[in-house]
């Protein structure tokens, strides 16, 4: 009889059954995943980005495969706040796992409106703010690359979140990720989520045009994992650990070894993204693998792993 491993994690005040979540944009509204696994076995799900008005998304091609990764430019296609609340919230209530809703927008007012409405929903454990979107009012510059804008948006959203923790998802496409992380924490972020995809391009050499209709897309998959692990460790050391803020880490995780790497680097919980496309129940296998790792290493509580890089 093996000793029971405690897989629970206190993430910004939310008790998760285990530290493995499915990442935003890779598990739909979580309802699509239920045909492939018992979602209740997850630590939680992060829904795709919800915007105030419905969004059709970009023309196709929206994805292209690369060596050890893929680019996507979906364009935040989603059914909008109103339909999300009426159609998807009731489904999410039956999942039996923690639900984090990813929030996106084009103006600070959009973010505030979506966050304020979702904060009233009991089933929503917390909000994940996607600040990698272009800011329409400021000529399309991304909210997430400018510390001043980050403070402004988080300050405004935090006021309407009530008791729901606000997780800020950082873009890695910046010169100094600690500067943007620090801005987020100072403005009231309860947790950091990292990393979003890396801006990238694939060119069709026959036509000399980008393959994606959007020209550029976000690179995800195993190709970005070592960079993501480095960035998580850097932000953990420089910002998150001193501030006592947890990190939701991810980027190219395919197996339990990858997930444990992120936790050692400083993540309190991890997200599984692209790997779910290939094997829909990858996250459950990863939970098993983490349990085995803890048993092998004599770790009684998985939370002890976070930030143990020597």
């Amino acid at each position: 009889m093996t000793e029971q491993i405690d897989l629970t994690v206190d993430f910004a005040g939310i008790m998760l059954a285990n530290p493995v979540l499915t990442a935003s944009g890779t598990c739909g509204y979580a309802d699509e995943l239920t045909e492939f696994m018992d979602v209740a076995g997850l630590g939680g799900v992060v829904t795709k980005s919800i915007t105030l008005a419905p969004r059709k998304g970009n023309p196709t091609p929206r994805i292209v495969e690369t060596d050890a990764g893929m680019l996507n430019a979906i364009g935040l296609a989603n059914i909008g706040l109103e339909r999300f609340v009426s159609e998807k919230i009731p489904v999410l209530q039956r999942l039996g796992t923690a639900v984090f809703v990813n929030v996106a927008g084009q103006m600070i007012e959009d973010y505030v409106a979506v966050a304020e409405r979702l904060a009233q929903e009991k089933v929503v454990s917390g909000l994940e703010l996607n600040i990698s979107c272009p800011n329409v009012k400021q000529g399309g510059i991304s909210f997430g690359t400018d510390p001043t804008l980050i403070r402004e948006i988080i300050g405004a959203v935090k006021k309407v979140c009530g008791d729901k923790p606000l997780i800020v998802k950082l873009t890695p496409t910046v010169t100094d990720i600690s500067a943007t992380a620090r801005a987020a924490v100072e403005a009231g972020a309860d947790a950091l989520s990292m990393v979003n995809t890396f801006t990238a391009m694939v060119i069709d050499i026959e036509t000399r045009r980008p393959v994606l209709a959007n020209r550029t897309g976000g690179l995800s998959g195993p190709a970005i994992k070592p960079i993501a692990v480095y960035l998580v460790n850097r932000v953990y050391q420089e910002v998150a650990k001193p501030a006592g803020i947890p990190i939701l880490g991810g980027g190219g995780i395919r197996n339990a070894t990858d997930a444990v790497e992120f936790m050692i680097a400083g993540a309190s919980a991890v997200t599984i993204g692209t790997a779910t496309f290939i094997q829909p129940n990858t996250a459950l296998h990863i939970i098993d693998g983490i349990r085995q790792y803890c048993t092998r290493k004599g770790i009684r509580s998985v939370a002890e792993l976070t930030g143990t890089l020597r």
Partner: peptide, 17 residues
């Protein structure tokens, strides 16, 4: 036909107008 990452409605890449 469209390029698709998952085939099960998760990735939203295979859009048809």
């Amino acid at each position: 036909e469209r390029m698709m990452a998952c085939g099960i409605g998760l990735c939203q890449s295979c859009a048809i107008e």
